[in-house]
Structure formats: structure tokens, C-alpha cells
Simulated assay, not measured.
Amino acid sequence: MRIALIGYGKMGKEIEQIALDRGHEIGLIIDQHNPKDLSADQLQNIDVAIEFTNPDSAFGNYLKCFEANVPVVSGTTGWLDQLPEIEKQCSEGKGFFYASNFSLGVNLFFELNKKLTQLMAPFKEYNVDMEEIHHIHKLDSPSGTALTLAEGILENHPTKDKWIEATSMKEDELSILAKRHGAVPGTHSITWHSEVDEIIIQHQAYSRKGFALGAVLAAEFMPEKEGFYGMKDLLQL
């Protein structure tokens, strides 16, 4: 399989190594030095593009790939205000795979978070809040992973209907504390607490390798597919 890497930072390089180890070929690399090379001519022999850039350039990158009929796997967060247009493109025959986090463990954590919220929802004695920690180069805050976790809580809790990036004691608000330290790949903690005890679930990433492997697995899933896909489709959750 010939892969285009759009974004060639630390994550892009990790994806490259795993893709090569799995027998794939990197047919095109796009970074800040050659954005104009992302064109129909350069993409004509590409089977799938893996996109990890930034919120400002992601949407335009998707459209250029779609113009060349190349399916896209993306882990860029912070662009979801333009999601309806991507969904429209997918309904018209384009292929797109999006995840706020490609880690197998994180996606199982998403499901655990939803289930625990359903179990805790009847007990008004407990409040819930969240903390996430990432490296200092993380561009979005809260992280896309934190927002997916927040959605899992809001959709399954009878009183929480919005999140806030601050400490809040309001019954309808979910507090998210976002921290940026050193080179932390990503830690997410959800705490249910009452006057007498607390329950904490946490996912801690040790390196980028788990995220990169998930992105390559998604790329292997996407050639010749049309529509909008995510980790639930890949992992059959």
C-alpha cells in the first residue's frame, strides 16, 4: 500500500516507521516546507493519506485528497466546526476516517467511561470531573480525547449538559482541568467523588507508538472505502 504522510512531526515519523515495518511504502511526505506538493498529480498513485497537522490546515488538506479520490485518515483535532462539510463529501463518495485518539486502550477507555457514567447516573451523591495532561506542544485545549470523554459523560448523565475548562460546582457543568507539562504523551483521569469516597478511572499513554499503530491500522482499513468511519468501525466495538 502506498501512503501519503501529511504532517511529518514526531507523530508522522512514528507512523512512517510502523508503516514501513508492516510492509507499506511511503509515496509522499508533506510538511511545512512543501505544502504545494499536496496536489492531484502527486496523489495519483497514493492509496490512502494519513493526516496529522493542525486545525488551520487540516480541512484544506482533506479537500485536496478528496479531489484526487484518495481516502483520508486523520487524527488532527480542533477543526470539527467544519465536520458537516466532510460528512457531505463522504455521502457523495469520499472516504474519511477520523479519531480524536487512535490508541486501542483509549478507545476501550471511551467505552468504559460511558458504562461507568450509566452506572453512576442514578446516584446524586456523586459529582464527576476530569483532568487531562499533555506535552507542552499540544495545540488544542482541552484535547480531542478529553472532549470525546466529555461527550460520553454528557450523553449518559441526567444533569450534566455542558463542559467547562475550569473548576465548577454547578450541577449541570462538567469541569475539565487541562494541563501541559514536559513531553507527556497523554494522561486522562475521570473522578467520581462524594463526601465519603471517590472512584477514579485513568488512561496513561507511555509513548506515541500506540497512537501511530492505530493510525496505520486505520489506513489499512480504508482503501477503496466510501463514507465516514471511526475507531468503533475498525475495532468492531
Rank of each mutant, 00 (worst) to 15 (best):
K10N: 10
M11E: 15
G12P: 14
I15F: 04
I18N: 12
L20V: 10
D21L: 10
D21W: 13
I26K: 11
H33Q: 04
L38I: 11
L38H: 14
A40D: 13
A49G: 03
I50S: 01
F52I: 13
D56F: 14
F59A: 13
Y62M: 12
Y62D: 13
F66M: 03
F66L: 03
V70S: 09
P71I: 15
P71C: 10
V72S: 11
D81H: 06
I86Y: 15
I86K: 07
E87K: 10
E87Y: 14
E87V: 11
K88D: 06
C90V: 06
G93A: 10
G95M: 00
F96L: 07
F97N: 05
A99C: 15
S100D: 06
S100C: 08
F102K: 02
L104N: 14
F110A: 00
N113W: 10
L119M: 11
K124G: 02
Y126V: 03
E132V: 02
I133N: 13
H134L: 05
S141K: 04
A150G: 05
E151H: 07
G152K: 03
N156V: 08
N156W: 01
P158Y: 00
T159H: 04
M169V: 04
E171A: 09
S175C: 09
R180K: 14
G182I: 05
V184P: 00
H188S: 08
T191I: 00
H193R: 11
E195P: 06
D197I: 09
Y206C: 07
S207V: 08
S207E: 09
E220W: 00
E220H: 06
F221H: 07
M222V: 05
M222S: 08
P223R: 02
K225P: 02
G230R: 07
M231N: 05
L234F: 05
L235D: 09
